[in-house]
């Protein structure tokens, strides 16, 4: 029962990846694409923790902690570049 619900949740997260990819391809400006990158990173944190449940090892949660810290730095560097104050 619970595993079925987790499988459906994983499929929904995968579907949202496709939709965000469409926004990345359409996006008129660079900032739209950076927002798409941000949403992709945050939702892939959720995907990795779901994977940690399916493979049943806690070490994968550490990978998502690294993601959460580092993606933030990447977005800030890109925004600083766009603002011309890097």
């Amino acid at each position: 029962m619970a595993n079925t619900l987790f499988t459906i949740a994983m499929l929904i997260v995968g579907l949202s990846f496709l939709l965000v990819t469409v926004r990345f391809l359409l996006g008129p400006s660079v900032v739209d694409r950076v927002v798409a990158l941000d949403v992709l990173t945050i939702s892939s944190i959720g995907l990795i923790v779901l994977l940690a449940h399916f493979l049943d090892r806690v070490i994968y949660v550490d990978v998502s902690i690294v993601y959460a810290i580092l993606s933030f730095i990447g977005v800030i560097v890109i925004a600083k570049y766009l603002e011309r104050s890097l």
């Binding site: 579907l15 990846f17 939709l19 949403v39």
Partner: peptide, 17 residues
């Protein structure tokens, strides 16, 4: 709760679109 959270991620993608 996980299912509801993944639905919100989907809403984020739809809103982005």
């Amino acid at each position: 709760i996980t299912l509801i959270g993944s639905l919100f991620v989907l809403f984020a993608a739809i809103g982005l679109l």
